[in-house]
Amino acid sequence: MRRLAAILMLTLLGACSTVEDLSPLSPSSPAVAVRAPKFEDSKPHEWDSGAPWTYAIHGTDVSKYQSSIDWPTARASGISFAFIKATEGGDRFDDYFNEHWARTRAAGVPRAAYHFFYFCTPAETQARWFIANVPRDPSAMPPVLDMEWNPNSPTCRLRPDPATVRSEMTVFLQMVERYYGKKPIIYTSLDFFDDNQLATFRGYPYWLRSVAGHPREKYGSHPFTFWQYTGTGIVPGMTGKSDINVFNGSEAAWKKWLRQNTR
């Protein structure tokens, strides 16, 4: 009788599940928990067209200001990737980088490290600082260079001319690409993009900030891979206001992009 019951149980399991069904999700799994989620927002924008929730893949970006995150809950709500601040300038390391880096991996959330550029330190020094602090992890997404003006900086109000900005960007990007073996992503805002004529700076994937309209309305035909559409989102598992982003492509395109960029 016991043998018969065991056979019946195995038969039922075989009919209902595959090996993948019974295996735990690995940290590098490209599976998407929620497709095209629609997060709440404390200051929602009225989207005329190209609403963010029409995109399949959503993610967030975090730093020390998001000090306590329940990553499994965030992932289950629809967070499929995370950009994590690592460094700034040539001597600042984000207090929560190591924690966010480890916990996103444990939760199965693909992640990338980003560097906030500081205009009073040479690009070469900044690239070396980033490399010294961010591990060379094949499972990570490509590193990110965050380029934006920082008018509130207490130590550096310098605004170099566009040619100098683009030259410094090139130094940083090339050094980081050589070390990690992945083409870095450029994050920027509309004013910085226009001020420094970044429409002419091609050859890298872009992550564009545009919280008051679709990127095609603000940046024209400039290609983008990621779009930051709000800084006031509400994400389960995260306290306070959250940045939320989308991947510019379908779920199939996302899985392909991950395969190409996380190995």
Score class of each variant (00 low, 15 high):
residue 75 R to M: 10
residue 182 K to N: 11
residue 58 H to K: 10
residue 256 K to W: 00
residue 179 Y to N: 04
residue 109 V to R: 02
residue 229 Y to H: 14
residue 87 T to Y: 02
residue 199 A to F: 12
residue 2 R to F: 10
residue 256 K to S: 14
residue 128 R to D: 15
residue 130 F to W: 05
residue 181 G to W: 11
residue 15 A to F: 10
residue 170 T to Q: 13
residue 169 M to Y: 04
residue 207 W to A: 03
residue 217 E to R: 08
residue 241 K to D: 15
residue 56 A to I: 02
residue 13 L to D: 00
residue 228 Q to F: 11
residue 33 A to E: 13
residue 227 W to Y: 11
residue 153 S to Y: 07
residue 227 W to P: 06
residue 236 P to L: 05
residue 213 G to W: 07
residue 103 R to E: 15
residue 113 A to V: 04
residue 118 Y to L: 12
residue 49 S to H: 15
residue 11 T to S: 13
residue 252 A to C: 00
residue 245 N to E: 14
residue 169 M to L: 14
residue 32 V to S: 04
residue 222 H to M: 11
residue 256 K to Q: 13
residue 10 L to I: 11
residue 88 E to M: 02
residue 146 D to W: 03
residue 52 P to N: 09
residue 246 V to K: 02
residue 194 D to M: 06
residue 212 A to F: 12
residue 224 F to H: 07
residue 247 F to V: 04
residue 18 T to L: 03
residue 220 G to A: 04
residue 6 A to G: 08
residue 236 P to R: 03
residue 157 R to P: 00
residue 51 A to F: 04
residue 218 K to M: 15
residue 48 D to P: 00
residue 17 S to H: 13
residue 169 M to T: 08
residue 142 P to F: 10
residue 223 P to Y: 06
residue 100 H to S: 06
residue 4 L to N: 11
residue 242 S to G: 00
residue 257 W to H: 06
residue 48 D to I: 04
residue 216 R to D: 15
residue 227 W to K: 07
residue 67 S to I: 01
residue 140 A to S: 15
residue 3 R to Y: 12
residue 72 P to F: 05
residue 28 S to A: 15
residue 85 K to S: 05
residue 62 V to D: 04
